[in-house]
Amino acid sequence: MIEVIGAGFGRTGTLSLKLALERLGFAPCHHMTELVDNAEQTDLWARVATGEPLDWDEVYRGYRATTDWPGAHYWRRLIEHFPQAKVILTVRDPQKWYESVRGSIYRVRSLPMPDGLDAKRRNFIDEMIWQREFGGRFEDADHAIAVFNEHNEAVRREVPAERLLEFQVGDGWEPLCGFLGVPVPDEPFPRSNDRQEFADRVAQRMRAH
C-alpha cells in the first residue's frame, strides 16, 4: 500500500528522496531506477503507458512509496486511488532543473540502444514523458520550463495543504520527518544522482552491452 507519493518531476532530487524514505521505513520506494534490468517492471509500465486499465494496487504491489517518473506523470490518479497517502512535491530552480534534465535523462534519449529491455523501456518513456508531458517540445526551454512550473502549481492547487509537503533536498531531514511523523535519523541526508553520477552510470550500462 502506497503511503507516500512523490509528485515532483525527475531531476528534482527524487533519488535522494527515495533513499531518504527508505531509510525512514517507507521501503521499498518506487523510482525510475526500479525499471533498470527489470523486465517485469518495464512490461507493467509499458502497459500503463498504452492506457491499458490496470489496478494501481497491482502496479505498486509490494511498494510503500513512489517518487520520480513514471509515477509522477500519474500523480492525480495516485492521490485519488491512495487517499490516505501523503504527497511530497520535490522542487528546484526551474532553469537549473531544465539544464539538469537536458544534460542527463533527455540526452540518453539520443544515444544508440540495443534491442530488448533498454529499447522497450526507452520507447515507453519517450511516449509518456517527452511526448505526453512535454508535447514533443522539450528542446524548447521556455515551453519545458512552463510545463514544469504549471505541474508544480497544479500539485499545490489540487492537493490539500495538510496532505502536501513542498520539499527541496537541501532542506534535510527535519521538515520531511516532521511531515511524516517519524524520528530524525542521526546521519546525513542522502544525496545521490548528480549529473556526473548519472553520466557514469549510463556509460557503464553502454559498456555492459
Rank of each mutant, 00 (worst) to 15 (best):
Glu174Trp: 13
Ala72Phe: 03
Trp45Arg: 06
Glu3Met: 00
Ala39Asn: 01
Arg61Met: 11
Glu3Lys: 04
Glu166Asp: 12
Ala7Leu: 01
Pro190Ser: 02
Ala203Val: 07
Arg77Ile: 03
Thr50Trp: 05
Asn123Gln: 14
Trp69Ser: 14
Asp142Ser: 15
Gln84Trp: 13
Glu58Pro: 05
Leu78Pro: 04
Ser104Asp: 12
Asp126Lys: 04
Phe9Glu: 02
Leu35Thr: 14
Pro83Glu: 11
Ser100Leu: 04
Gln168Trp: 07
Val36Gly: 00
Tyr98Gly: 01
Ser192His: 14
Thr67Arg: 06
His81Tyr: 14
Asp37Ala: 12
Gln95Lys: 15
Arg47Ala: 14
Met128Asp: 14
Asn149Pro: 11
Thr33Arg: 11
Met32Trp: 11
Trp75Ser: 04
Leu15Gln: 10
Pro183Trp: 01
Glu174Thr: 13
Arg23His: 06
Val36Glu: 08
Ala208His: 12
Arg205Met: 10
Val101Leu: 12
Tyr60Val: 00
Arg137Glu: 13
Ala161His: 07
Met32Thr: 09
Asp142Trp: 11
Ala208Pro: 10
Phe124Pro: 13
Pro94Ile: 08
Cys29Phe: 00
Val91Thr: 15
Arg47Phe: 06
His143Cys: 07
Leu24His: 00
Ala27Trp: 00
Ala7Asn: 00
Arg122Trp: 14
Trp75Asn: 01
Arg92Glu: 09
Asp68Asn: 02
Ile125Asn: 12
His209Met: 05
Arg109Tyr: 10
Arg47Val: 03
Tyr98Trp: 08
Ala199Lys: 13
Val147Tyr: 06
Ala49Ile: 04
Tyr60Gly: 01
His30Gly: 05
Lys18Gln: 13
Arg137Val: 10
Gly181Asp: 04
Gly13Thr: 12
Gln131Val: 08
Asn149Thr: 13
Trp130Arg: 04
Ser104Gly: 07
Gly116Cys: 05
Leu164Gly: 08
Ala199Tyr: 01
Asn152Leu: 02
Glu99Asp: 13
His31Tyr: 01
Gln196Leu: 14
Val184Phe: 02
Ala146Trp: 09
Glu162Ser: 10
Glu127Gln: 14
Lys120Tyr: 02
Pro188Asn: 06
Val182Pro: 01
Arg191Ala: 08
Ile129Asn: 11
Pro112Glu: 04
Arg76Phe: 02
Tyr106Arg: 15
Asn123His: 13
Arg11Val: 08
Glu99Tyr: 02
Met32Tyr: 02
Ile79His: 02
His151Pro: 09
Asp200Pro: 11
Arg132Val: 12
Gln168Ile: 11
Asp142Tyr: 12
Trp173Met: 05
Arg191Glu: 03
Val4His: 00
Arg107Ser: 13
Leu44His: 02
Arg76Ala: 06
Ala85Gln: 09
Leu111Asp: 11
Pro190Met: 03
Ser192Gly: 00
Arg191Trp: 05
Glu166Thr: 15
